[in-house]
Amino acid sequence: MWSELRGLKDEIDFGTPPRDGSPVPLEIDSVAVTVPAGSSVMLAAAAAGRPIPKLCATDMLEAFGSCRVCLVEIEGRGGFPASCTTPVVEGMKVKTQTVALQRLRKGVLELYLSDFPESEMADGWSEFHETLKAEGVASHPYGKGGANHFEAPVDASNPYFLFDPAKCIVCSRCVRACAEVQGTFAITIAGRSFESKVVASQDQPFFESECVSCGACVQACPSHALVEKSLFEGEYKHAEPAEA
């Protein structure tokens, strides 16, 4: 019971919360696996030892389906469904590593990378960095002169963590952690499209917002946009602007 909480494992991120349902057998890349009903294809893949790359998904939060990195192919279905928002069905046959999928993922990741400070790539160890490495994406074809968020101001108002919008991929994990895990609802996404950004309360500095500094958003952030100040030596400086 309460698998959403008790089924969590320290070293594994299943991508979506564990469930309690009756067993459902399926195949992931020809590997047979059985998971509880209500589980996502993403969770089944992790359980089968065939983890699917992801950015907006983590197993402490309900699936959201925004990052489009976790796409899969399912036999008998058209298109490329997101594995995080697709529940398992008995007998389902899932492919996670086709050429078409790799091409799609690469395209998506290159778009993310095009608005991520180049100076922050070399020694990064966030989930975002690790995902790019795992998928072999080290560059993008969009040049350096495009619109970006590199100079958006850092919010260092909270004594314990900072928010650097330059590294934010707007995956909403922080927003959902604040709502689902902490229950404070202090963070939201303001604006649409390229203007969309993470804001606390009424676009206030974190320290002045309703934020209770529980750290759930920092824990959830996949790109070190929200990050503990204690991990830096010396004062935090904004990313270098990209060279045109």
């Binding site: 402490m60 314990y160 963590f161 209770v212 529980c214 750290g215 759930a216 503990e228």
Partner: peptide, 10 residues
């Protein structure tokens, strides 16, 4: 279950 508050976390 993976959650924290301002005291223990920071």
């Amino acid at each position: 279950h993976g959650h924290s508050c301002i005291k223990g976390r920071f």
